[in-house]
């Protein structure tokens, strides 16, 4: 579901918007409703509501010329419409820019407000803007997670050569590709994990991981919608997370140990799947055998 939504958004934005625009639109619709829920739950005697921009105030229109002379009505309607949309997402774009600029400072300052302040200064926005993120450092970590997911999707969409490989190799390649994005931040990644594990942030981080795993399964070409769906995603989520943890203490060059660990776990999972399937076939065969002998017994007993 997320994939199709993502695709739609991408198609929608692709002709007009800049790259960062796409990312912001991709990113925030998932996150915003969440923040709001959490705010509402934190204290019983307070409630938060977001008042969206009431757009038709044309007094603040930065470009009044757009309305002036245009013959066709349809032509006239369109710039206004896009402008309105752009104004609405503007602060989200700005927030995304600040977060993007904060990432280079993470290596030195960690996933902290200090990094975000440095990022805001870098893009020439008042660091006050950080106060508008409901869960400050978590926003930075979540931004990074979304950014990585986006890059993974891009890679999946462009990497035709991957389609031919067998599923288990394909999965480990994708997980490896995704985990490699964390390499520059590996010294601070435990901090990011601890931020993600804070009770307030768990729902979002869980969702992001679910989306990641889902994306990988889709890339492998899995379209199952039965009970297997949950099993597959749980197993892959487990593999991803254990590898992620393994990576934190891996000091081998180029994380070689991590990748062999990853390959081992993926292989285990596929072996397990085979084992389960074999057990299933056996059970079916036994069941069928029992069934036919029972049928024969019943037939004989009632003189059929």
């Amino acid at each position: 579901m997320y994939r199709t939504a993502t695709k739609r958004l991408l198609l929608l934005r692709a002709p007009s918007g800049s790259n960062i625009n796409i990312k912001a639109r991709l990113r925030f619709p998932f996150l915003l409703p969440h923040h709001q829920n959490i705010d509402n739950n934190t204290c019983r005697f307070s409630s938060t509501s977001e008042i969206p921009q009431s757009s038709p105030h044309q007094t603040f229109n930065p470009n009044p010329n757009q309305h002036s002379t245009s013959t066709s009505t349809a032509e006239e309607a369109r710039p206004q419409e896009t402008q309105r949309k752009r104004r609405y997402v503007e602060y989200e774009d700005e927030q995304a820019r600040v977060l993007q600029a904060s990432l280079p400072h993470v290596v030195r300052l960690g996933w902290t407000e200090a990094a975000m302040i440095a990022g805001a200064r870098a893009v020439g926005v008042s660091p006050s803007i950080i106060g508008s993120f409901p869960r400050k450092e978590a926003a930075l970590v979540e931004f990074f997670m979304d950014d990585c997911l986006q890059r993974l999707i891009d890679r999946i969409d462009s990497g035709e050569e991957l389609k031919s490989t067998i599923p288990s190799d394909h999965i480990s390649t994708l997980i490896r590709f995704r985990l490699q994005m964390q390499v520059p931040y590996i010294s601070k990644w435990p901090q990011a994990l601890s931020i993600q594990a804070q009770p307030l942030n768990v729902p979002t981080s869980f969702k992001q991981r679910a989306m990641l795993v889902d994306e990988i399964w889709h890339a492998v070409g899995d379209e199952a919608s039965d009970i297997d769906w949950y099993v597959k995603r749980t197993v892959l989520g487990g593999i991803y997370s254990t590898t992620e943890i393994y990576m934190l203490t891996d000091s081998s060059p180029d994380f070689r140990d991590t990748w062999s660990f990853l390959n081992g776990r993926v292989k285990d999972a596929f072996d397990l799947k085979k084992t389960i399937q074999e057990a299933q076939y056996l059970a079916e065969a036994v069941g069928a055998g029992m069934g036919s002998s029972l049928q024969g017994f019943v037939k004989r007993a009632f003189g059929g």
Binding site: S46, I51, S54, H57
Partner: peptide, 19 residues
């Protein structure tokens, strides 16, 4: 809140305290 938005501010929110 709508007055604040009309002044040009974005992400206008409010939080009620003590009901």
């Amino acid at each position: 809140a709508s007055m604040i938005a009309a002044a040009g501010f974005q992400k206008v929110e409010y939080e009620n305290l003590v009901g």
